[in-house]
């Protein structure tokens, strides 16, 4: 399908790029990306992927917009308070770019639904805020062979890595098991500087776009960390772990499961 005149104009700055062009833009328009979490990370991820013309964006989050979200979750506006985050996000995505088909999932991802959910997408972006979801997303994507971008933020520090299952380091290669429950600070105790998810989420969106275009060097086998207070980026090469419980030589995890112990960390503490 040829680009329309308005698409040519909308995506003109992409089309000019040697690495994108009309063909690359067409690839993006034919792509499907699932964003899990419509919060701090999910906000810039969804906004930039929408603007970039990703043809289908899925967005999963069970939560509703709260006043305390607005300091960093830039896809949600003050009048959205009380609205389901996925609906608020969908409205902004469609306002930015009517080319984008939005599928909303007003639910938490769990072992029961995640395999079916990710199977419909080319790339998955983790924009969640708790370890239970992060391990679940890693396990599901590794088992399904689905490439995904991990992102995490706390206080002034963020990290991100792109996982190409079977090819590059996965989250469990680095962290075989979730941290002990007491070691995990809650959202309310820890705090986060509002611009931090903007930086990490934008990098995750960049990785999704590069993966879909098949261009450039992905953040695979390398964990990027960002310290906003020191204003330092570090890029640490991490090899695959032969003892990784899910992608190692003798995997012990062969199906997804919920880390029930960890589910209480953030969102379930809310009234």
């Amino acid at each position: 399908m040829a680009l329309t005149d308005s698409q040519i104009e909308r995506y003109s700055r992409h089309i000019i790029l040697k690495e994108v062009g009309g063909k690359g833009q067409q690839k993006l328009l034919n792509s499907k990306v699932l964003i899990i979490g419509a919060g701090g990370l999910g906000a810039p991820i969804a906004l930039y992927l929408a603007a970039a013309g990703i043809g289908t964006i899925g967005i999963a989050d069970a939560d509703s917009v709260d006043l305390s979200n607005l300091q960093r979750q830039v896809i949600h506006f003050t009048p959205d308070i009380g609205k389901p985050k996925v609906i608020s996000a969908k409205e902004k995505i469609q306002a930015i770019n009517p080319d984008v088909q939005v599928r909303t999932y007003q639910q938490w991802v769990s072992a029961a639904n995640i395999m079916e959910l990710i199977s419909q997408y080319d790339f998955v972006v983790d924009g969640t805020d708790n370890f239970a979801a992060k391990f679940l997303i890693n396990d599901a994507c590794v088992l399904a062979g689905k490439p995904y971008s991990h992102g995490g933020i706390l206080q002034f520090v963020g990290q991100t890595i792109t996982v190409l299952p079977g090819e590059s380091t996965c989250y469990r290669c680095i962290f075989p098991t979730p941290p002990p429950k007491d070691a995990i600070p809650t959202c309310s105790q820890a705090g986060v500087i509002g611009v931090l998810p903007g930086v990490i989420g934008s990098i995750q969106a960049t990785e999704a776009i590069k993966f879909l275009l098949g261009k450039g060097k992905l953040l695979a086998g390398r964990m990027l960390t960002y310290d906003a207070l020191e204003m330092k980026f570090r890029d640490v090469t991490i090899n695959r772990n032969p003892n990784c419980p899910i992608c190692g030589e003798n995997p012990t995890i062969t199906q997804v499961r919920d880390e029930l112990e960890l589910l209480t960390v953030c969102d379930l503490e809310k009234p």
């Binding site: 680009l3 040519i8 104009e9 003109s12 700055r13 089309i15 000019i16 062009g21 009309g22």
Partner: peptide
């Protein structure tokens, strides 16, 4: 500019 090159680029592809 830049639509001049945008249209050229699409043809060149």
């Amino acid at each position: 500019c830049p639509m001049t090159f945008v249209k050229t680029k699409l043809k060149l592809e």
